[in-house]
């Protein structure tokens, strides 16, 4: 009776012990040196595997950083604190960058007229191939959501006019939406630049006015309203210099089409009225 139990236990136990010892020996002999830095850096990275750095994922970037093949600021999605700690691990100088956010520079959507009805594959990239897209405005958002699908952080959503808006709090400026947009109307702007012209069209007033009610057509009202001289014009399109802008919002009040927008709360209130 005892034998029936003892022998199997002893045999299998012995076998397991023998194999375990052999494996322990083998693991010493075939040990691969792993850089402890890689894991530490990977834990500090954003962990979204968005690919903004140009590497296949956060793990590969951590490896490249540890080997000195990638810069400390290669990941745009990492916060400045985490970046400082990565720099500490690597023993290099920390690089602070200004937090950026993607901005869709178009307020067209249903306010901008269509040239034809597009019924093909429902992506912006495909629509763009058909005579430059369904919008008359060559800079207009086609509203098929390539940027929304490209965003790994769920920071982009359509507003009620069918134009994507970026949630600045969620956006990490990985730039995937910028790459995805065939119109090239998504730009990375510093989060500190609170006033901007959300339009990209370069047409004259008489060409753009009948097409889009929200476009900047270069009337110059904002230029006259701005006391800081922060507004400049190029090809019938206004732009705000964030360094000179004091966010007085005088330009927004004067703009006849609402093409100038501010991210400040007081401006939001005015726009919703």
């Amino acid at each position: 009776m005892l034998n029936d139990i003892l022998w199997p236990v002893a045999a299998l136990g012995g076998l397991g012990l023998l194999l375990g010892l052999l494996l322990a020996l083998a693991s010493k002999k075939f040990a691969v040196k792993k850089d402890p830095k890689v894991e530490a850096i990977r834990d500090l990275l954003a962990g979204a595997n968005c690919g903004a750095c140009g590497f296949p994922g956060c793990n590969s970037l951590a490896q490249a950083m540890a080997e000195g093949k990638a810069a400390v600021d290669a990941c745009p999605a990492t916060s400045n604190e985490a970046r400082a700690r990565i720099a500490e691990i690597l023993g290099v100088e920390a690089v602070e960058t200004e937090p950026m956010s993607a901005v869709v520079l178009c307020r067209g959507g249903t306010n901008s007229k269509d040239a034809f009805e597009y019924e093909g594959v429902q992506t912006c990239a495909a629509a763009k191939l058909v005579a430059g897209g369904p919008k008359i405005c060559a800079w207009g958002c086609m509203g098929l959501g390539d940027c929304i699908r490209a965003c790994k952080f769920s920071a982009i959503a359509f507003n009620r006019y069918g134009v994507p808006r970026v949630d600045e709090n969620k956006c990490v400026a990985c730039g995937q939406c910028v790459k995805a947009c065939p119109q090239g109307i998504i730009k990375l702007l510093p989060k500190s630049s609170t006033v901007r012209v959300e339009c990209m069209n370069h047409n004259r007033g008489k060409d753009i006015r009948p097409i889009c009610s929200n476009a900047c057509f270069g009337c110059g009202m904002c230029f006259k309203a701005c006391e800081e001289g922060a507004i400049t014009f190029q090809n019938y399109l206004a732009s705000v210099d964030p360094k000179k802008c004091t966010a007085c919002l005088a330009c927004i009040e004067k703009c006849p089409t609402g093409a100038i927008v501010s991210t400040l709360a007081k401006a939001r209130e005015k726009q919703s009225q």
Partner: peptide, 20 residues
Amino acid sequence: LAFILVIAALVQFVEMVLMK
């Protein structure tokens, strides 16, 4: 049981060799 034990140990060994 014994066979699985042997195979598992062997696979572990192969994995180590391959990693190296």
